[in-house]
Design a protein around this nucleic acid. Structure first.
Lengths: 246, 246
DNA sequence: TAAGTATATAATGCATACATTACGAAGACT
DNA sequence: AGTCTTCGTAATGTATGCATTATATACTTA
């Protein structure tokens, strides 16, 4: 249901507008275009090796999704995520994921699907033992993606994925400041256990409690980092205007 | 946060692309462009009195939101909503609204805001007594919009509004087949009472039960209407290709 | 007559061109 | 010297033009 044109996904022949959309979004989510980064359409078009038309289309779409602001004459600006933004995105995502957990459990997915959850959790365990934060993040991301994608409601899937992507913009920020997330692994395992049993009620309760706890921790992290103001999404908050990609 | 450019909202000087976006979307939501309606960019551009460029931009955005499908060479096609689509949209909206009810109650909005809820419910009561379905729909819509917009989470607001709009595409369909929604008024009033007291727990419970009941009723309506297949969003399911606007 | 192929038509996606407009810089006036 | 005004520059939004491609139709051959 989300964006795709002609070619279905990531192949060779994707049209320029789609490429522009993905490359810019990836740059923002991946931290290569930092919060506050500004650029003009001609510059972007030059960098992406295409004309302004597809770039313009991509920017409008990204504005709809909240990734950039288009200000007259100033071109695009990567939206800054205030503490409030981060909290609100996390809250919404929590709500959506809890619903997804309930539906997934109620659907009683086939054992093969549940094994994918197990695999993700095992990898989270391994990464935690090894102290490999990046690997843990990847596995955790995959777990949440699995949970979302197996809920059966395509609109819920699209929406939750959209905000999971948004959340990736500040994931590294929080993961740098949080204590080793042992309880995440335990909770996730318990949710999977409930899913395996088809126990939707328990899945909801555990996942909701987990998300509540995470929100409290997030609040602590945020107040620790800085009183408020737009959050530095990477290590160079000042270097906005010059080139900003790296 | 959603779409707008230069001019903030609905003024005179909105750019052509934004106008195209709104007019086409309004036509779809308002039932003027019926499910399955197809059109080519040149034809739309002609009808809207602009060139293909802004029309193209609008269509891509509408595709992102699930209102149209763009098939190579076939132009745009207004997406058909299957029973499954209707159910999934309603489920997601229920989830979002329950969360909004909880947050609204937890925020303890000022009495002036709560009076707006009262006004909407009073109008629902009046419309129900008078048997005026249209008026009831309008008031009900306003109630849900109020509930959403007073939750305090801007991302939740945007998302819920988006699906409330989608739900308007099939609202008339369900409202034609459902029995007089007395329990809606009662439930909504109870939710408002909980909001007034700041009782988030009760607000959630009532609204969730209300939505559950509504989903069951929706299922009955849907199975009654037709086994499945794309739902006729207006009374003329066949007249897709010729002109489709009315 | 039917099936396959070739050609023509036209819609899409992108590039370019143009008009509008906003922002900045420079100069003039107080 | 500071402020206001005017002019120039350049970015945006849209229109148009062009290349690509897919579909439909017509023609040819078995």
């Amino acid at each position: 249901m989300p964006s795709s044109r002609s070619q279905d996904s990531g192949g060779i022949g994707v049209c320029a507008a789609e490429q522009a959309y993905r490359r810019i979004k990836d740059a923002i989510v991946g931290g290569d275009m930092t919060t506050g980064f500004q650029s003009l359409e001609p510059a972007l078009a030059l960098r992406l090796g295409m004309s302004r038309t597809p770039v313009h289309e991509a920017l409008v779409r990204l504005q709809d999704e909240g990734y950039v602001e288009l200000k007259a004459r100033r071109g695009m600006r990567v939206t800054s995520l205030s503490h409030r933004d981060i909290r609100e995105i996390t809250e919404l995502l929590a709500c959506l994921e809890v619903e997804a957990a309930e539906r997934t459990a109620a659907r009683r997915p086939p054992p093969a699907d549940v094994m994918a959850f197990d695999a993700a959790i095992e990898e989270m365990d391994r990464a935690l033992e090894a102290g490999n934060i990046t690997a843990w993040n990847d596995a955790d991301y995959r777990f949440h993606l699995l949970l979302i994608e197996s809920c059966g409601n395509r609109y819920l899937i699209d929406t939750a994925k959209r905000f999971l992507e948004q959340a990736n913009r500040f994931r590294h920020l929080t993961s740098a400041h949080r204590k080793p997330p042992v309880y995440s692994n335990v909770n996730h395992a318990a949710v999977v256990e409930a899913i395996r049993r088809g126990d939707a009620q328990t899945a909801v309760e555990i996942h909701r409690a987990h998300k509540r706890r995470w929100l409290r921790e997030l609040d602590e992290i945020l107040t620790m980092i800085e009183p408020d103001a737009p959050v530095p999404v990477d290590s160079r908050p000042g270097s906005a205007n010059d080139d900003g990609m790296r």
